[in-house]
Amino acid sequence: MEMSTVPAVHDATLPDKWIEANSSVFRENFDRMSFEVSHHLALHPLFQLPQLMELAERTLKTRPSDLYYDMGNVAPGQKWKDTGRVFSPLKALRQLEDSSAWFIFRSTQRDPAYTELYRHAIAEIKDMVGGGIESKISREDIIIFVTSPKRVTAYHIDRECNFILQIHGKKDLHVFDREDRQVLPEEELERYWSVDHNAPNYRPELQNRARSYKLVPGNGVHVPVNCPHWLQNDDNISVTLSVNFQFIDSMRADVYRANHYLRRLGINPSPPGRSSLRDRAKVMAFSIANALTPLRTDPLSTEPLSQARRSEGRK
């Protein structure tokens, strides 16, 4: 089984506008709830497997930490630390049909061949958001995911505001409401922002609370910050583009971090947003202890927590 070959096309054959969304749905749900979008990037030549193999080779030579991969059968509730590798990334990519692999090409805009694609895509999203969003963003990124047939991407949450655009193949995306505390308890959010990107736990008995989308070439889904989600690839090779950014506002994250340590002291802290006075006091107290907090990373971010905290407040 091979990914269907698509004739190479020049960027000029693409329409001026790449990403489409219902404007009223966008305004109402942006960074609140998931919703579907459409796009015109499925024929873009930079997403063909030969070009992605070249990208992998260049990335391994110049930015090896920006190419993550793992292999094997994965269940929705499995943790990143429980995945493994059998052979080299280039071999796994060449044998994608049978390697049960999942690849993440992080910060693809750092590769000169993809820089203009990044600029165009991120500019369109900023234009759709409007409202001075530029001043609220601390970090922008495009990530390419390449996935073997039937492979699962485990349940997780992200610190980024995501637009997941399907390029090749089909897969199912299941997105949960981040405000549902049975799905995502406060304690798991606190641990996520403090010490453990593996903190959110999949609860199969609550799967019916997810909003499910069939991703096909030409459509995509907006996934807000911290909305739990997982994916099941169809019996095909899949290529997916994530256009995403992180917000500057660090107060909510730092309140979660402060609450994590308060809970360890036996205190039952109030969630962020209940009292602006308490939130500010927690942030101030947390900033004093910040340097003592353990570091950690996850497959979707190479940035240690202490560095991430510093970058949240800086553009």
Rank of each mutant, 00 (worst) to 15 (best):
E57M: 08
T147N: 05
P299V: 15
A154Y: 00
L241A: 04
N208E: 15
R63P: 01
R252I: 13
S148G: 06
N259Q: 13
Q166E: 04
D127I: 03
R139E: 03
E2T: 02
S100Q: 14
V146M: 02
L46A: 06
S34W: 01
P204S: 14
I125S: 03
A56S: 10
R310P: 00
F145W: 14
L165G: 02
E303I: 08
A123H: 11
N259M: 03
D298Y: 11
H10L: 08
D234Y: 14
R159E: 13
L295P: 06
Y69R: 01
H260R: 12
R58W: 12
T13N: 12
D70A: 06
M71G: 05
D127M: 05
F30M: 13
F35P: 04
H39A: 02
T293W: 06
P204I: 13
V221P: 01
L93W: 02
N259P: 08
D82R: 04
L14G: 02
P294G: 15
A56Y: 00
R263I: 03
P64N: 11
M3E: 01
R310H: 05
S4P: 07
L173N: 06
E186M: 13
D158Y: 10
N290A: 11
S242M: 01
R310T: 06
S250R: 00
Q78M: 04
S275T: 15
S270G: 10
R263C: 09
S212W: 15
P89L: 11
K170T: 12
V195I: 11
F103V: 12
S148C: 12
G131M: 10
K91Q: 11
N73A: 11
D66I: 10
R278H: 02
E179T: 05
D180I: 03
F247L: 14
D298F: 10
T293I: 12
A12D: 06
I288M: 09
G72P: 08
M128T: 01
E190Q: 15
V74H: 06
V175K: 01
L46D: 07
L206T: 05
F35G: 01
E20R: 07
F245H: 08
A12F: 00
P269A: 10
R296S: 12
R211V: 09
A113S: 03
M71P: 07
D66R: 15
P64R: 13
F105Q: 02
F105A: 01
H174D: 11
D66W: 00
F247K: 07
Q207P: 00
T62E: 09
K81C: 13
R309C: 12
D298W: 13
W18R: 01
S88R: 09
V225K: 11
R106H: 03
P45F: 04
Y114D: 06
S301M: 09
N244V: 07
L96N: 00
D234S: 15
I104N: 05
Y261G: 07
M1H: 00
T13R: 00
E190S: 12
G220I: 11
P7G: 04
F245K: 04
L241Q: 01
P149C: 08
N162T: 10
E312C: 02
L165W: 04
L55G: 07
L52H: 06
R309V: 15
E57Y: 08
A21C: 05
E54L: 09
T115N: 13
P217K: 03
P204T: 14
G77D: 06
R181F: 13
P76G: 12
K170Y: 14
